[in-house]
Amino acid sequence: MHDYQRPPTLYRYGRRADLEQALASGQLRLIPANRCLTFSLSQAWDKDLFEVFDADACLVIHNTEEFGERLHKAVQRTLPNWAGIDGAVEYGVRAALGAAFTKTSAEAHEQEWQFAWRSLSPQATLNPVTVRIGSLEQYAELRAPDSYSS
């Protein structure tokens, strides 16, 4: 049995300019992967992930339930014929949630939590989509790599 409860904190490693837009207006970019549109975060606060993701900042989300619900609602408004789900990525085995949540054992250090949407229309084209969910400032913050402490 899998536990699909969102972790209490999620981390999005990236470029400061992009993360500042995410914090201020909730601007998030969904990218195509495995016939889905996806948005991934990490469940880990890990200094090494700044290098893995070529990041100079990290968006730390403290209220993952609020964030997840707002993200799903925004995508539903933008892409009404798409179904969404989120959960932990599984590494080295086929994930119960399918290919979009399956990655190689070599990627396990990323400890991803992923949001994914699949079109209900088989002929849908997959292009990156930007959604806005509103300011995250009430429950998120930006951190620099030098603020890392284990």
Rank of each mutant, 00 (worst) to 15 (best):
A99K: 15
L136R: 08
A106I: 10
A116T: 02
A96Q: 14
G68C: 09
L71I: 04
A74Q: 11
C36S: 13
G98Q: 11
A144C: 03
Q5Y: 07
A106E: 14
R118L: 12
V60P: 05
L19F: 01
L41V: 05
W117Y: 08
T102A: 11
V75C: 13
D3E: 12
A95F: 02
V93K: 15
A96W: 12
A44F: 04
R70Q: 13
L120F: 03
R15E: 05
W82H: 01
A106D: 14
E66W: 15
K73A: 13
K73N: 13
R16Y: 01
P128K: 15
A116R: 10
I85R: 15
L142F: 06
R132L: 06
A108S: 14
G84T: 08
A17C: 02
E65I: 14
A99S: 13
A100L: 07
L30P: 00
R77W: 05
A96P: 04
A96C: 11
Q43C: 08
W45S: 12
F115M: 05
Q27E: 08
G26S: 01
P145N: 11
P80V: 11
A108F: 05
G134Y: 09
S119M: 03
W113L: 09
W82Q: 04
E112I: 01
Q111S: 09
D46N: 15
P7D: 02
L49G: 01
H2F: 10
V75M: 10
A99D: 14
F50A: 08
G134T: 03
F39M: 06
N34T: 05
A99E: 15
A124R: 06
A88F: 02
